[in-house]
Write a protein that binds this DNA or RNA. Structure first.
Lengths: 148, 148
DNA sequence: GGAATTAGTATAGTAACTAAACTTAAACTT
DNA sequence: AAGTTTAAGTTTAGTTACTATACTAATTCC
């Protein structure tokens, strides 16, 4: 046996493969929010990236989400028709557009955040604080390894 | 401060948010394989799910990938035109179709597997065996928590 | 020997992008 | 001051990766 791993665990590659398939599934499931309607994962990520306070440039949003500016234009257009987001002028640069959440948008943000909190609370019943700590730390190393 | 977490770590929710955006990005990047050409992430997951030996039913493939049978039909059709996969008859059930990898398909499988191995080897330079073990274990709990 | 189930396919529609060409504004260059 | 380059954002057409629905054919279940 050329595997001298002395820790009896599920294989990392196997677990990670399952995680990816699970996340792919999760990431194509829209979620419906009370008084707002269904929001796709991309819409939710965008709302998340804007944040509940202040405003963000289109290009900054593209950078945060890791997508092109063209994709952001399309997403913001859709969120604008849903009245979750507003565009406003940049005070000094006429080229720039500032995006911020409407009252409705903030409500969606909060409800989504609560879902997250509930999830992490539920996770704490399954994992010890030590495990959670290592998990968070290793995710960061993992991300680092992902983009070399 | 109502956060009595005594472990100084990046917040799990923050790390996980970043992980999701990173994986979304990764999961829309095709990879090119020597002598085969570019393969999309979905195509690679499908090849992975078929495996290098034996054959798999369409419906089993759909279950493994967590997508509908219709989606599998389309993916297999594409992989068939790329000559990475062949359909064959089920010995006793005329309705069923068995899918297996061609020689080319197995080559793609192997090259992809080598990429994975290289990634995990690189990860081992960043993480201790204990961390890797806990990471694998906690991913499983995490997946469990994801689908309640 | 039907009736219900199961395996797979076909088709139309949607989400989530990208790439490339474009417009307008701002910042440099000389 | 005029021209050039860069940056911000939009538009459009195309692709991938699905889903949902309706369908055909084979099998199993009374």
């Amino acid at each position: 046996m050329d595997n001298n791993n002395k820790y009896e665990t599920p294989s990392l590659s196997h677990s990670f493969g399952r995680l990816i398939l699970q996340l792919r599934k999760l990431e194509r499931q829209p979620r419906t929010f009370e008084g707002i309607g269904p929001l796709t994962p991309s819409e939710l990520h965008t709302i998340d990236a804007i944040g509940p306070e202040g405003s963000v440039l289109m290009s900054e949003l593209a950078a945060r989400l890791g997508i092109t500016k063209g994709a952001v234009t399309q997403l913001i257009a859709r969120l604008e028709t849903k009245e979750l987001v507003v565009r406003s002028m940049h005070p000094t640069d006429q080229r720039s557009t500032l995006i911020s959440l409407t009252v409705q948008g903030k409500a969606a943000y909060m409800m989504h955040e609560e879902l997250h909190q509930a999830f992490y609370k539920q996770l704490q019943t399954q994992m010890s604080p030590e495990e959670i700590a290592i998990f968070a730390k290793t995710i960061d190393k993992f991300i680092f390894a992902l983009d070399h």
